[in-house]
Design a protein around this nucleic acid. Sequence first.
DNA 1: GCCAACGTTGGC
DNA 2: GCCAACGTTGGC
Length: 157
Amino acid sequence: MGSTTQFWLMKSEPEEASIDDLQAAPNRTLPWTGVRNYQARNFMRDSMRPGDGVLFYHSSCAQPGIAGVAEIAGGLAPDLTQFDPRSPYFDPKSDVAAPRWLQIDVRFVRKTRLFALDDMRREPRLASMRVLQRGNRLSITPVSPDEWAVVMALLQA
DNA sequence: GCCAACGTTGGC
DNA sequence: GCCAACGTTGGC
């Protein structure tokens, strides 16, 4: 029964929330706000468990790639930015009585050397990673135990 | 700034 | 329920 640790890759734009920001946050934890994709939301709602491993990925920046390791800390809750008209994540169609979008807390584990997207693509054992698939845009993707192990080993090397 | 890819929207 | 148009993502 469900004690198996799962693994995820979560994209963040470093200008908005970098691995350094996560490390500097209170309790080294930040709520993951701004997810506006149903598949990604469902991962948070249905599948993520406290203790799950997270590859913290910097996207939309000069050096895209894995920048650190984090973990799911729980705290699943409505993402309040959906109700804030001044937020870029405001969703006028979301109802306070039935919030459409959720957040979950992510806790810093460690910073790593940057494992660049280029280098990830060059590693045959990572070819199956969802984030590397053509046309992928999901900001949260599952990582298999094998993929996780390969990334950990390469980050050590 | 470009553009491929893909999710969402809305007319029918 | 189909599907064209549109908007967004994100690497380059």
